[in-house]
Simulated assay, not measured.
Amino acid sequence: MKKYYRIIICVAVCLAVGYLSSLATQSSIKTWYPTLVKPFFNPPNWVFAPVWTLLYILMGLAAGMVWNAYDKNSELTKKGLLFFGIQLFFNALWSYLFFGIHNLLLASIEVILLLLLIYETYLIFKKIEHKASLLLIPYLVWVIFASALTISIWALNR
Protein backbone atom coordinates (compact mmCIF):
# COMPACT_ATOMS: atom_id res chain seq x y z
CA MET A 1 0.00 0.00 0.00
CA LYS A 2 2.91 2.33 0.76
CA LYS A 3 3.99 2.31 -2.89
CA TYR A 4 0.58 3.64 -4.01
CA TYR A 5 0.74 6.48 -1.50
CA ARG A 6 4.12 7.52 -2.87
CA ILE A 7 2.73 7.59 -6.39
CA ILE A 8 -0.35 9.54 -5.29
CA ILE A 9 1.85 12.06 -3.45
CA CYS A 10 4.08 12.56 -6.49
CA VAL A 11 1.12 12.98 -8.86
CA ALA A 12 -0.50 15.44 -6.44
CA VAL A 13 2.73 17.47 -6.15
CA CYS A 14 3.11 17.63 -9.93
CA LEU A 15 -0.51 18.68 -10.42
CA ALA A 16 -0.12 21.31 -7.68
CA VAL A 17 2.95 22.73 -9.44
CA GLY A 18 0.95 22.78 -12.66
CA TYR A 19 -1.90 24.60 -10.96
CA LEU A 20 0.44 27.17 -9.38
CA SER A 21 2.13 27.69 -12.75
CA SER A 22 -1.24 28.31 -14.34
CA LEU A 23 -1.80 31.22 -11.96
CA ALA A 24 1.05 33.10 -13.65
CA THR A 25 -0.40 32.18 -17.02
CA GLN A 26 -4.02 33.17 -16.45
CA SER A 27 -3.41 36.88 -16.06
CA SER A 28 -1.64 37.14 -19.44
CA ILE A 29 -3.40 34.56 -21.58
CA LYS A 30 -6.24 36.90 -22.54
CA THR A 31 -4.39 40.22 -22.46
CA TRP A 32 -0.68 40.09 -23.31
CA TYR A 33 -0.32 36.71 -25.06
CA PRO A 34 -2.78 37.49 -27.91
CA THR A 35 -0.70 40.54 -28.83
CA LEU A 36 2.38 38.44 -29.61
CA VAL A 37 3.36 37.35 -33.10
CA LYS A 38 3.41 33.56 -33.08
CA PRO A 39 4.88 30.99 -35.47
CA PHE A 40 2.68 28.97 -37.82
CA PHE A 41 3.00 25.87 -35.59
CA ASN A 42 1.56 27.56 -32.48
CA PRO A 43 -1.31 25.33 -31.28
CA PRO A 44 -4.65 26.76 -30.19
CA ASN A 45 -4.79 27.82 -26.53
CA TRP A 46 -7.21 25.06 -25.55
CA VAL A 47 -4.55 22.39 -26.29
CA PHE A 48 -2.21 23.43 -23.48
CA ALA A 49 -4.30 22.62 -20.38
CA PRO A 50 -5.14 18.99 -21.25
CA VAL A 51 -1.62 18.29 -22.53
CA TRP A 52 0.00 19.69 -19.41
CA THR A 53 -2.45 17.89 -17.12
CA LEU A 54 -1.59 14.57 -18.75
CA LEU A 55 2.14 15.35 -18.63
CA TYR A 56 2.00 16.25 -14.91
CA ILE A 57 0.20 12.97 -14.20
CA LEU A 58 2.82 10.98 -16.16
CA MET A 59 5.63 12.86 -14.41
CA GLY A 60 4.12 12.10 -11.02
CA LEU A 61 3.70 8.42 -11.87
CA ALA A 62 7.34 8.27 -12.98
CA ALA A 63 8.61 9.98 -9.82
CA GLY A 64 6.49 7.72 -7.64
CA MET A 65 7.82 4.62 -9.37
CA VAL A 66 11.38 5.83 -8.81
CA TRP A 67 10.65 6.66 -5.18
CA ASN A 68 9.35 3.11 -4.77
CA ALA A 69 12.76 1.80 -5.91
CA TYR A 70 14.50 3.56 -3.02
CA ASP A 71 15.35 0.32 -1.20
CA LYS A 72 17.11 -1.07 -4.28
CA ASN A 73 19.49 1.87 -4.81
CA SER A 74 18.99 4.70 -2.36
CA GLU A 75 21.83 6.94 -3.59
CA LEU A 76 20.78 6.84 -7.25
CA THR A 77 17.14 7.26 -6.25
CA LYS A 78 18.01 10.35 -4.20
CA LYS A 79 19.90 11.76 -7.19
CA GLY A 80 17.02 11.01 -9.55
CA LEU A 81 14.44 12.61 -7.26
CA LEU A 82 16.72 15.63 -6.74
CA PHE A 83 16.97 16.16 -10.50
CA PHE A 84 13.23 15.59 -10.78
CA GLY A 85 12.58 18.29 -8.17
CA ILE A 86 14.96 20.73 -9.85
CA GLN A 87 13.39 20.25 -13.27
CA LEU A 88 9.93 20.63 -11.71
CA PHE A 89 11.04 23.97 -10.25
CA PHE A 90 12.34 25.06 -13.67
CA ASN A 91 9.06 23.91 -15.20
CA ALA A 92 7.17 26.33 -12.95
CA LEU A 93 9.78 29.06 -13.39
CA TRP A 94 9.21 29.10 -17.15
CA SER A 95 5.56 30.12 -16.68
CA TYR A 96 6.62 32.97 -14.43
CA LEU A 97 9.31 34.19 -16.84
CA PHE A 98 7.17 33.91 -19.95
CA PHE A 99 3.67 34.83 -18.74
CA GLY A 100 4.39 36.48 -15.39
CA ILE A 101 7.10 39.00 -16.28
CA HIS A 102 6.87 38.70 -20.10
CA ASN A 103 10.59 38.11 -20.51
CA LEU A 104 10.78 36.08 -23.72
CA LEU A 105 14.57 35.97 -23.82
CA LEU A 106 14.94 34.63 -20.28
CA ALA A 107 12.11 32.14 -20.91
CA SER A 108 13.94 30.98 -24.06
CA ILE A 109 17.18 30.43 -22.19
CA GLU A 110 15.41 28.82 -19.25
CA VAL A 111 13.44 26.36 -21.41
CA ILE A 112 16.70 25.02 -22.85
CA LEU A 113 17.98 24.48 -19.30
CA LEU A 114 14.69 22.78 -18.47
CA LEU A 115 15.08 20.51 -21.47
CA LEU A 116 18.58 19.49 -20.36
CA LEU A 117 17.36 18.84 -16.81
CA ILE A 118 14.50 16.68 -18.07
CA TYR A 119 16.90 14.69 -20.23
CA GLU A 120 19.26 14.13 -17.30
CA THR A 121 16.30 13.10 -15.12
CA TYR A 122 15.24 10.67 -17.85
CA LEU A 123 18.75 9.14 -17.96
CA ILE A 124 18.87 8.71 -14.18
CA PHE A 125 15.33 7.30 -14.03
CA LYS A 126 16.27 4.83 -16.77
CA LYS A 127 18.98 3.39 -14.52
CA ILE A 128 16.54 3.04 -11.62
CA GLU A 129 13.22 2.02 -13.19
CA HIS A 130 13.06 1.73 -16.98
CA LYS A 131 9.25 2.02 -17.12
CA ALA A 132 9.41 5.28 -15.17
CA SER A 133 11.84 6.73 -17.69
CA LEU A 134 9.47 5.85 -20.52
CA LEU A 135 6.75 7.93 -18.83
CA LEU A 136 9.02 10.99 -19.17
CA ILE A 137 9.37 10.66 -22.96
CA PRO A 138 6.10 12.52 -23.80
CA TYR A 139 7.20 15.31 -21.45
CA LEU A 140 10.61 15.46 -23.08
CA VAL A 141 9.07 15.60 -26.57
CA TRP A 142 6.58 18.29 -25.52
CA VAL A 143 9.32 20.45 -24.01
CA ILE A 144 11.35 20.10 -27.21
CA PHE A 145 8.29 21.48 -28.99
CA ALA A 146 7.80 24.13 -26.28
CA SER A 147 11.44 25.16 -26.66
CA ALA A 148 11.02 25.68 -30.39
CA LEU A 149 7.80 27.59 -29.76
CA THR A 150 9.28 29.79 -27.05
CA ILE A 151 12.40 30.64 -29.02
CA SER A 152 10.30 31.33 -32.13
CA ILE A 153 8.00 33.67 -30.24
CA TRP A 154 11.02 35.48 -28.81
CA ALA A 155 12.59 35.80 -32.27
CA LEU A 156 9.35 37.08 -33.83
CA ASN A 157 8.74 39.66 -31.08
CA ARG A 158 12.15 41.11 -30.21
Rank of each mutant, 00 (worst) to 15 (best):
S74C: 07
L134I: 12
T150P: 06
F125S: 01
L135W: 05
A132G: 06
E129G: 05
E75M: 12
K72H: 13
Y119V: 09
S74V: 12
I109H: 02
S133L: 03
I151R: 07
I118L: 11
L105I: 08
L115Q: 03
L97D: 02
Y96F: 15
T150H: 05
F90K: 03
I137P: 02
K131N: 13
W142N: 05
S147P: 02
F125I: 03
V141H: 01
K126N: 13
L135P: 00
L149F: 08
K126P: 02
S74K: 15
Y139R: 09
L105M: 13
F90L: 15
F99E: 10
L140P: 02
G100F: 02
V111E: 00
L81K: 09
K131R: 14
W142K: 09
F84E: 01
L117S: 09
L81N: 00
L123G: 00
Y122M: 00
L97V: 04
F89W: 05
F83W: 14
E120R: 11
Y70F: 15
I112Y: 02
I118P: 10
A148N: 11
F84K: 05
L115T: 07
Y139T: 10
I109K: 00
L93V: 12
S108K: 07
I118K: 04
I86M: 08
V141M: 14
L88R: 00
H130A: 13
I144P: 01
I86A: 09
A146M: 10
F145G: 09
Y139N: 10
